[in-house]
Write a protein that binds this DNA or RNA. Structure first.
Length: 286
DNA sequence: CCGACGTCCTGCTAGC
DNA sequence: TGCTAGCAGGACGTCG
């Protein structure tokens, strides 16, 4: 389940292997991916050079001489540079021939991912700006507080909302909430300002360490060279249902929240008392 | 307009 | 041992 750290790791591993490489040809095989749009670009990108590989949220941007490829790994997507002679794995949907010996392959068994082409840089920017909030490392404290204060949704659901903060998925939402000692069902606007700030810092810290560990490998996540990540060894709550919390020893619980499996420590992560009075008491209002 | 929820997709696994 | 229902979840569409 690639989230920001996994996508960042893939980008870092692909960057030196793709930048400056000329794409000889591209092909799409098997059944079409969902949500990838028209595929006429496959014919037009032959001969173009890769200028840059970068990340925005969970999206991978491959900048070409003329246009961009925008890749989302979905749940099970893998983007890897492999020798041409390596057998083509099942569910390989897109292949970019890079030279005599290597090709970039996009593989995605569950087909939640996508590979789309943008001819126009402004259109790509508009597409991303429309759906993505700031990167977690660049959250501006006041804007973050304002975003949380204007919604009653459970904080877990807010963290998963890419328009609020880009790149957080189920694993790092749970891990960050545990680090900040916040109950995942807490309505966002009930969080005290210092807790909002604690969460902002926890997100940054958890994601930074996860990137240093090259992401988490749960099932089939691999980076651009086919290597596993190691952050799964650092999980404090995710998939640790029934195990003792490393901080207080209480049993980690699992609930269903925002349609997602949610893991937390009932002792370290308490729901705050309602701050209703602060809102309704005129003496407290400006 | 906001927020909750269903849908897509396949492979693995818990449970009978 | 073999079968099947259920689970996993990111993005997006739909509905109240």
């Amino acid at each position: 389940m690639p989230e920001l750290p996994e996508v960042e790791t893939v980008v870092r591993s692909l960057r030196p292997r793709l930048t400056g490489q000329r794409i000889q040809s591209a092909r799409i095989s098997g059944q079409r991916m969902r949500r990838s749009g028209p595929t006429r670009w496959v014919k037009s990108i032959g001969g173009q050079m890769v200028r840059e590989v970068r990340r925005r949220g969970k999206w991978i941007i491959i900048e070409l001489d003329d246009g961009h490829l925008l890749v989302h790994l979905g749940m099970t997507g893998q983007l890897r540079v492999v020798p041409v002679k390596e057998p083509v794995a099942p569910h390989t949907h897109v292949t970019l021939r890079l030279g005599r010996k290597h090709e970039l392959r996009f593989r995605d068994e569950r087909r939640f991912g996508s590979v789309a082409h943008f001819a126009n840089a402004a259109a790509l920017q508009a597409f991303l700006d429309d759906k993505l909030g700031p990167e977690p490392f660049e959250l501006e404290p006041t804007a973050w507080r304002n975003a949380l204060q204007r919604t009653r949704r459970a904080i877990k659901a807010v963290l998963l909302d890419q328009a609020v903060v880009a790149g957080v998925g189920n694993i790092y939402a749970d891990e960050s909430l545990h680090r900040a000692r916040i109950h995942p069902a807490t309505p966002a606007q009930n969080l005290a300002p210092r807790m909002m700030n604690a969460l902002r810092l926890a997100l940054s810290e958890v994601l930074t360490v996860a990137i240093e560990c090259r992401g988490s490998s749960i099932r089939n996540y691999l980076d651009g060279n086919g290597a596993c990540g190691g952050y799964q060894e650092e999980f404090r709550v995710y998939q640790r249902y029934g195990e003792p919390c490393g901080r207080c020893g209480a049993m980690i619980e699992r609930i269903r929240l925002a349609g997602r499996s949610t893991h937390f420590c009932p002792c370290c992560q308490r729901m705050p008392a309602s701050r209703h009075r602060l809102v309704t008491n005129p003496a407290r209002q400006r």
